[in-house]
Design a protein around this nucleic acid. Structure first.
Lengths: 350, 350
DNA sequence: CTGAAAGCGCTTACAG
DNA sequence: CTGAAAGCGCTTACAG
């Protein structure tokens, strides 16, 4: 029923070696022979067994794509970009949705996951344990990471510090002086640098402009919109609430928007809100944001990876892609009354 | 460097056949022999080549998961459920993000995508072309679909008709009589039944209660929030706007919510809105919805699939999972004035 | 309980 | 330009 290369060889009256060469488009096959082989293969609906080819050639034409959560906006879009490029180049995607539950996540549990199974690995915004790094090294295939610079492998990312710097500058430029920050916490066990870098971008920009950041104007959520609402409520319910909020992601910012609505605060009349990412829902909700090209980062990383598969040496360079301020309707100048509400007044308000 | 079964056999002083049996936990290996083999394998950090095992055994332990768009909420969550179960059972996920661009999408372009590469295929809410069905049949592996009942293969789904029936009943129960519908259009070339079934659930429920559905109170978006806002605006800007809206998905409903805000309409005071899905953003925005268990459907379909891989005959039964009304703050009784706004008045309002 | 050997279906030097 | 043959690294009857 299912035809093998032997069947095609017989039908075409040539050797299996010739069939193999003809079908893969290798040179040194005469046109007439190639035509015969192609015809026979088509007649028999022949498709080479990828398993047998891989065993013989050592190439799988499969790339492992490792993510902590497929369901999150950022990761889903990275996967989309990666998978598009891989498909174009004739590669397949072996997806590992490993979760991020500290040391017990799946990648660690099973060294057989990737071994001898893939030609390359794409690590999407996952902070690796030492055991995992060691495992990846032993795989002996190219690796590219996205999101976090890495000592061992090339990386495609945005400048996290720069994102919150841009966001904060925007608000300061509008006249805000009392600005709050809704950050994203990291999983405790991971030393994922994004949360800290974004927080630093905020603080240092404020400082550079001579603006103070009080302890209670910085709150931390867990990157989800629901937590953004919760910590946003804390922040905005205070008598000395800020006139503007920088959120470390659009999801957090959307949560802050919801909190503002619940508190009866108008955006941007009473409070301005800016996020980071350019999520679809940001557009829908008129959220000003610092956009990052996520699908594009997935594509770039994959192109790097495939060039490494093709034999190019990538070293461990870091490609930083630019972010871009997208002004919508959630940011404006602070309310006129706010100008009067300076440090001393705030103090007395407590 | 990389060890083969032969190396382990030598180190343990047994044959490769015995190594193979011992490592896979087959019976009829003495405890002492098994211990020796396990020790040798561990020392050599041996991992069997999946490629070689597959060629020899005919099993790949890989399942193909085919989706139109990884980035959409529904699909990302299905993948998450599926991948969880597959990982638990020792299977790998080969992901095909094929897009849905009519007849040119990737699955069709390349019959080599799945051939001899997977032990089973999960088709996630994708309406198949005849050529694709034929291809899948020739694969000769179990197939399970999600979302759309299928003549050839088992399916896991929700009752689409029932979702909008529940939603519509909820609004009618609150006292609404003039209800609009924001539906989701299908890709023109596909005969995907969901849009039509949901629209029917709305219309027939209205009819059953003796309520009329005027032509301009039904509008169609493309399932995205952005289009929900656009068509929602059309619907709600009319002088004879409905007092409540059923949207065919939460994303559409969130768009309608945005449209209402832009038009200065209070929700639910001026207009009630209900969606379908129970998207995270629905919770955030207080959107009443008919929840469907998406991750769970992914899990169920995968369990079915794996039982088929294990040899069970599934026929082509359809498993319908229940949906559930989740009341939040976007629905309430119609405004008092609306009681007076009956058919004749509406007519004169134009 | 264990081993020798065939076989899975390709690819790839090596000859010619 | 083409073919015979070895080899990729496993698994699986078949004997014993």
């Amino acid at each position: 029923m299912v035809s093998r290369i032997e069947d095609v060889a017989q039908a075409a009256g040539v050797s299996t070696a010739t069939v193999s060469r003809a079908l893969r488009g290798l040179p040194k096959v005469s046109d007439s022979t190639r035509a015969k082989v192609l015809k026979a293969a088509a007649d028999l609906q022949y498709v080479a067994s990828p398993t047998a080819s891989s065993l013989a050639s050592g190439k799988t034409h499969v790339v492992g794509v490792v993510v902590p959560y497929v369901t999150r906006w950022y990761f889903a879009h990275l996967i989309s970009g990666a998978s598009e490029v891989l498909r174009e180049q004739g590669f397949h995607v072996l997806l590992f949705d490993v979760g991020d539950e500290g040391p017990h996540r799946a990648l660690l549990l099973d060294s057989r996951m990737l071994f001898k199974r893939v030609d390359a690995v794409l690590i999407l915004s996952l902070r690796l344990h030492d055991a995992e790094r060691e495992l990846l090294r032993r795989l002996n295939v190219p690796v590219v990471t996205v999101g976090v610079p890495d000592d061992d492998w090339p990386c495609v990312r945005i400048d996290d510090y720069e994102t919150t710097r841009q966001a904060t500058e925007h608000l300061i430029g509008l006249g805000h002086r009392h600005i709050g920050y809704v950050g994203g916490d990291t999983v405790p066990s991971m030393d994922f640098p994004t949360p800290a870098d974004r927080a630093r971008g905020f603080r240092e920009t404020m400082q550079r402009h001579g603006l103070t950041v009080s302890a209670h104007s910085v709150v931390m959520g867990d990157w989800t919109a629901v937590s953004g609402r919760e910590v946003g409520r804390e922040l905005l319910a205070r008598p000395d609430r800020p006139t503007a909020v920088v959120a470390a992601s659009d999801e957090l910012a959307l949560g802050v928007l919801a909190a503002a609505r619940e508190l009866g605060l108008a955006v941007p009349a009473d409070v301005s809100v800016i996020g980071i990412d350019d999520h679809e829902m940001a557009d829908l909700n008129g959220l000003t944001t610092v956009a990052q090209p996520v699908v594009e980062q997935g594509r770039m990383a994959t192109q790097l990876l495939l060039s490494a598969v093709a034999g190019h040496d990538l070293g461990h360079e870091v490609a930083t892609v630019p972010t871009r301020l997208v002004v919508r309707s959630s940011t404006a100048a602070p309310p006129a009354s706010a100008a009067a509400v300076a440090e001393p007044v705030r103090a007395s308000a407590r």
